[in-house]
Design a binder for these strands. Structure first.
Lengths: 336, 336
DNA sequence: CTGAAAGCGCTTACAG
DNA sequence: CTGAAAGCGCTTACAG
């Protein structure tokens, strides 16, 4: 591999000048810049980033830790993150945590080892000790998006989960539903708690009583939605007439459980999801759901992190708007 | 950040010894190794990877270029890639090409700039000139998976697309279908050509004639499947009784088009997809499709690349098995 | 088993 | 605008 020395020789100048011509062209005369450009092409030079990173002690790389790359929810968030990063000359290293604490630890370690400048965390399913340790360290650039820790304050971009769930529940109530169940995500997850709180308040506002066995826990997969849906629909006389699911995949699982149980959606059962993933328009029936501005979440989170890296003063907590999208999986409550 | 010097001071030895204790512990006495470990903990040292990379001129990073991170097909492939990489002490940098040639160029550039040791390419939607240039350069570690270029020989892991499509078509023929349409992916894509060839042969084998306006092109999205499906189903007397789609998302789009057109699947229309993504079990009806061993493709591709990096002799072309999964979107052809 | 020393390829403060 | 020189933090061949 040709180095900056080879270029300097070919351009008949010092390595310092080559470096300047490449990194800050305005510091160099037109003629020199041109000679250097020619020399670069001639010798087939490309900058050794490891050397630059070492010298500058920065890597221009941001690590994004996500719980599971298979989750379609994240793809737009990632697009948003990447578009802002690339525009600013940063790369994005996508780290799939895959429920593996070691892996997460190794991603975190990329920052002290100078392979990454900062981290965006999209999951709370990571070893708390690790995060706590880093957060104590003020110099560790760490931003959360989509999720957050309820016992730890970190800069974060999110939606108002409670309000969104509240509105979804209200909508079901407005349709005349009185027996409304919910399938939550993992119960310890703060955003799931928020969505559950929104659900409870929605019922309470309407004077409906909350039936604890209609609050069931899933894990955000199709399969868990299917299983919990099946169970909820078994009680065939006083079964729920509506189910609010904390994400779309579980809602789509419920649609299947309903089909298998011979319960017609939306005539006999209304279903609401959360996220508005692409598939929610292609399932049968199309899913009423809470739309999240996923790209914007990604963009905003990356901007926040880059601002932190530049030591800019920035709001550390931003909430973005959601929207209830009404499609065909909800309807007026059936007569008893 | 503490450096190796600080550790050396705390352990009362040279930096050379610290380096050895960390990188090749067997070269160092037990006592020293222990002292170094203590010192590392005491000063809170972590190795500066940029310095190591510069010195060793390797990065232990593999770039995976994919066309679109939102495509659920890739998530298992990525899991496979990552599991092998991490086991071997490599990191994976996921690069979303996003139909942006500049971005792809910058990912390719990671190798000469010493930020990546090799590339796995999961898409042919990249500037040919770039690939051609690199491939000419024998020292450039580049492996393809899932897709391939038909005018360029690169090490590649794939399935037998033609055979898989042939079998799927045969299956429809065996169900008595005589009017079988197909929705392809982008026509210039070699794997799409292969699948199309398999379809043609399947029809030819059965003595069915091939109707050119039943070979329509989509782009692998739900939407294109929906649109093309809608058009195919419009011709209501002699419309096709079966549609073979080159991926599941388009097949799911067709299911929706059929619902909208009042065509009942599978009684009036059989639909087959390709890939066996998770959704294919949660759409209505569940999708008959060609299963690809996605994890295995990923694992095999990463092993191949790592072997190439170690200059091992390896088979440069491996084909993995597919399987037709019969679910509920296919049935015997309706009577005319 | 250990240390002194060179060097990986850059960047940048300093001097002119 | 340009160059000589120091130095970023490691690793490793060499010598002992």
């Amino acid at each position: 591999m040709p180095t900056i020395k080879d270029v300097a020789r070919a351009a008949n100048c010092s390595t310092a000048t080559v470096s300047r011509a490449l990194a800050s062209p305005e510091k160099v005369s037109d003629a020199t810049r041109h000679r250097v450009a020619q020399a670069v092409a001639k010798v087939g030079y490309s900058l050794n980033a490891a050397a630059r990173n070492l010298r500058r002690s920065e890597s221009r790389t941001i690590v994004v830790i996500l719980p599971n790359i298979a989750n379609p929810f994240f793809s737009d968030v990632i697009s948003g993150l990447e578009s802002v990063a690339h525009q600013a000359g940063y790369q994005v290293l996508l780290g799939d945590a895959g429920n593996n604490p070691d892996r997460v630890a190794s991603y975190f370690n990329l920052v002290p080892s100078n392979q990454a400048d900062g981290i965006i965390l999209l999951s709370t399913e990571v070893p708390m000790a690790l995060v706590r340790e880093r957060q104590a360290d003020a110099g560790f650039p760490l931003v959360m998006a989509c999720e957050y820790f309820d016992n730890l304050s970190l800069p974060t971009i999110h939606i108002d989960n409670e309000q969104a769930a509240h509105k979804a529940t209200e909508y079901l109530v407005a349709l005349g539903h009185q027996r409304i169940a919910t399938i939550t995500g993992p119960a310890r997850n703060p955003i799931c708690k928020d969505r559950l709180r929104g659900y409870r308040h929605g019922l309470a506002d309407a004077g409906l009583n909350i039936q604890d066995d209609w609050i069931v826990e899933g894990d955000f997969t199709f399969h868990s939605g299917y299983e919990q849906g099946r169970i909820l629909l078994q009680q065939d006389k006083k079964r729920p007439t509506a189910i609010f699911c904390q994400n779309d995949e579980m809602a789509i699982g419920v649609l299947k459980a309903a089909r298998d149980a011979g319960v017609v959606v939306p005539e006999q059962l209304s279903v609401i999801g959360f996220d508005d993933i692409g598939f929610s328009q292609y399932c049968e029936p199309e899913l009423t759901t809470v739309h999240q501005p996923r790209e914007a979440i990604g963009r905003t989170a990356m901007r926040l992190l880059l601002d932190i890296l530049k030591q800019r003063n920035v709001p550390l907590d931003q909430s973005l708007k959601t929207q209830l999208i009404v499609r065909s999986s909800t309807a007026r409550a059936p007569r008893d």
